[in-house]
Design a protein around this nucleic acid. Structure first.
Lengths: 156, 156
DNA sequence: ATAAATGCAAAGGGTTTGCAAAGGC
DNA sequence: GCCTTTGCAAACCCTTTGCATTTAT
């Protein structure tokens, strides 16, 4: 299930920074790094609790901070009013396709887009740093009438 | 300053929906519809107060809801932890370029991008509804060393 | 032994809601 | 006059912080 190698890298990061390797940090790291979804802080807490080692909310957020600082996890904001987190995989950068019905998130990569953003930014005098593209639509299974659930705050 | 025509359309919308045309709604509509910036709820409240007619926070949010429903205003989420609002101009859709230093927001339009998002969505079985692209970078004046201020929450 | 992490609960920021008072139609 | 809006304050959600206690090293 969870990729041992990534956990080891997190432990190495903790050691490097003289940060204690606690059971809570490990449990949280295993959940986030082992997930292929974009988890919210609450979902992380629930998943950790489901494994038998419940942790406090503050601990989840503090562990997430550490994971973000380690670079092993990245945060996402889909305009839901809260953040989501996902393992920073080898993929250098990718865009998101979000189902407005069930909340499912798919990823994709497009190099043309990458180039295009640089050109646009420069044409307006901006030094491009990064970009973010989210396409909203209805996924295949929802189009076929599978009852969805999640609701996200509309943004243009 | 504010475009009378748009206000009239808002009044027409209110009439059409049997919603009272109150001084507060008008003041808020004039501020939002007359602005060329992306205002936060708080900024709207301040601007309205500056005009001499202070309104409560709840009223600002409720009036914004009405403006959104009327289609005359659209909301934006730049990952700052709160929403911003801008008049829905004739521009059908546009992207944003945000300065990570001073917070300045510029808009632009790109048709190729529009098409590209439809193609990508369809290739993955999604029925495209809308998309959102934000490019982060450093604007010209900040590159030349003008002290910025605003800080936005990092998102990839 | 020491410095840091944990948990809890309280605080914090943006937004929403309940309800009595005010006001448009 | 009836029904909606307003304002205030309390409630809400997500997130952060303070502090006593537990824990890794």
């Amino acid at each position: 299930m969870s990729d041992r190698g990534v956990i080891d890298r997190f432990v190495a990061y903790l050691r490097d920074h003289n940060l204690p390797v606690t059971a809570q940090r490990l449990a949280i790291a295993e959940v986030v790094l082992g997930s292929d979804r974009h988890l919210s802080a609450e979902e992380i807490a629930q998943a950790v609790a489901a494994r038998g080692t419940a942790v406090g909310t503050a601990t989840v957020y503090r562990a997430i901070d550490t994971l973000l600082e380690s670079g092993l996890v990245v945060e996402r904001d889909f305009g839901e009013g809260f953040r989501r987190f996902e393992p920073a995989r080898d993929i250098p950068h990718h865009e998101h396709l979000v189902c407005t019905q069930c909340g499912r998130v798919e990823e994709f990569r497009d190099e043309r887009l990458e180039r295009m953003t640089t050109i646009v930014a420069e044409s307006r005098g901006f030094a491009r740093q990064r970009h973010r593209l989210v396409i909203h639509g209805i996924c295949g299974s929802c189009q076929r009438g599978a009852g969805g659930a999640a609701r996200i705050r509309g943004d243009a």
